[in-house]
Design a protein around this nucleic acid. Sequence first.
DNA 1: GCGCTGATTGTCT
DNA 2: GACAATCAGCGCA
Length: 197
Amino acid sequence: MINDLPAPLPEEFFQLPTLELAQELLGCLLIKTTPEGTASGYIVETEAYKGPLDRAAHSFGNRRTKRTEIMFGKAGLIYTYKMHTHTLVNVVSSVEDVPEAILIRAVEPFSGIPLMHERRGLPDLVKLTSGPGKLTKALGITMNDYGGSFTEPPLYIAPGNKPESIQCGPRIGIGNSGEAVAYPWRYWVTGNPFVSR
DNA sequence: GCGCTGATTGTCT
DNA sequence: GACAATCAGCGCA
């Protein structure tokens, strides 16, 4: 267990263009503090959503609603979304009034692993966080985190290890969203076993 | 208010 | 490989 929590990344870090930030986030630590303890993991897979152009995004065509409101805010904000029985977590990127975000698809457990096992009820380490819905449950991320900032606890991102090599490719699970399906906006750490599918 | 949809996962065939 | 789970958000009446 770590007593000293790592310092969060500065707000400036998130000011990068969405596609660059999606790559920079790989290898960073995603940390969630709760009354039960702290759980964290290295981000190993991300996916970019560029609202104005992207038919797969909730904010396609600059659609501004209660749900997507947060994506029009500043970079570094937390956008959580409930999908079926699971919660997904995004990092808002780009500048204000431009609805772009990065979905965190997978992390590699780093600290608080016993807590994650307890939350997921699984003995298999790899299956704890190898998917967007799974990692939120393992880390204890909920809709309560919606609207917060990744620059401060209880949910934030800290510098980690830079991956040796990363790959990019088409996104997954967005069905037929026209041209958007083929955009290579999914990034992952080469060869990492925690990457989904 | 009412019905439809979905950025996923787990289970069954 | 196919399908149900489960609920908030959205569009429309």
